[in-house]
Design a protein around this nucleic acid. Structure first.
Lengths: 198, 198
DNA sequence: CCTGTTTTATTGATTGATGAATCAATAAAG
DNA sequence: CTTTATTGATTCATCAATCAATAAAACAGG
């Protein structure tokens, strides 16, 4: 019963399955068969569409990054004030979707995978650069001369919070993780900000 | 030529080799043969002493953690002032040894591995709890009521900085990474500290 | 509106490589 | 003659990737 035009349906089913399986197992040693089974097809078909396990991983990563990017743009829309825009960048990083266990687990695994795959490494670099350049751009007006270090700090807190989330589960996380980053931002504004007065 | 008492020598050679190999490949898919070769012995002997690849990884992790713990205790010795002690905790995390590429790479990989192995997960939790409880203990006097969130922030920055270091290499890291954490500490002291003066 | 050819979808079985773990054998101390 | 050290060869399992085969839709011309 081959309905035509299955390719996009199969692809996205596989991509979802990759993320779910990585999340379930916590590692990237998941077999193509596991992924294919979860996506409701044979491993041969998975290979038929993606060619290799590697490209499934890369596609999954691209998918996560694209989703994130879309979310950022959506949340930034209409916001013009620099401080508000930085806060939006922070909060989007900690949004419901991005804190989904499967997503964070996949992130962490892609970080490791980047050391193996040049393509993933490049993707990750692009993503990092974009986030930090976004941050720096807004911070330039808020904490002139200090935008680089503050941006780096915010980015580090985001990554660190992700890790801790993956490691310990959300249970014993004291506070909403975004509050740490927001706190850091507000203290930086007070300390280095051009308008220290409220 | 079996000289007796080889066990400890072989063990530590293997542990070193595990860390080096993980660092070299960036992942934990290194073979026992690779590890054994680097440690100057056959893979059979490696199995003879450790039983399984898994216990080699666990032993390597224990080794890194023990070394770190020793370094912390050493650096803290004699320091009594709370602020100084927190700064020492931060700086030790970013010491020369702990920023060695192989070490950071191994760290990151163990983070991922923790999701597979209950033992590693427990080890990591112990380590994290110890660091944060140390931080909280000192911070209690410095930023009363806020020690939990500040400790969490410092810990997150440390983890985040590690990741970024692994990902990008030390080249395009703007500043010494400890400065971000130290900055965060000092701003927290100014904002929440009991002695805002000075 | 048939009929054969091409394209797309799909899978069970096979191949080939890889690598963890075990074994059998050797040898030097004690 | 038992214990410790050591390895080359072997076993056994796992998987990524490919193949051969099946089937159904689309399409072609008569």
């Amino acid at each position: 019963m081959p309905k035509l035009g299955m390719q996009p349906i199969r692809s996205s089913a596989l991509i979802e399955a990759v993320i779910t399986e990585i999340g379930k197992s916590g590692t990237m040693d998941v077999t193509v068969s596991q992924i294919a089974r979860r996506a409701g097809m044979s491993s041969a078909l998975a290979h038929h569409y993606f060619g290799s396990k590697n490209s499934m991983f890369v596609a999954a990563m691209r998918h996560i990054m694209t989703k994130f990017h879309r979310e950022v743009r959506q949340n930034l829309a209409g916001k013009t004030e620099a401080k508000e825009r930085v806060e939006t960048l922070i909060c989007t990083s900690f949004s419901e979707t991005n804190l989904q266990p499967d997503t964070t687990s996949a992130w962490l695994n892609f970080y490791v995978f980047a050391q193996k795959s040049g393509e993933v490494s490049r993707l990750l670099r692009v993503y990092h650069n974009r986030l930090e350049s976004n941050l720096r751009h807004e911070l330039r007006q808020l904490v002139p001369g200090k935008e680089a270090i503050v941006a780096e700090g915010i980015a580090a807190i985001i990554d660190g919070a992700y890790i801790r989330r993956v490691l310990r589960g959300k249970t014993d996380f004291l506070d909403n993780p975004e509050n740490i980053a927001l706190d850091y931002l507000h203290m930086s504004l007070k300390t280095y900000g051009r308008d220290t007065a409220h």
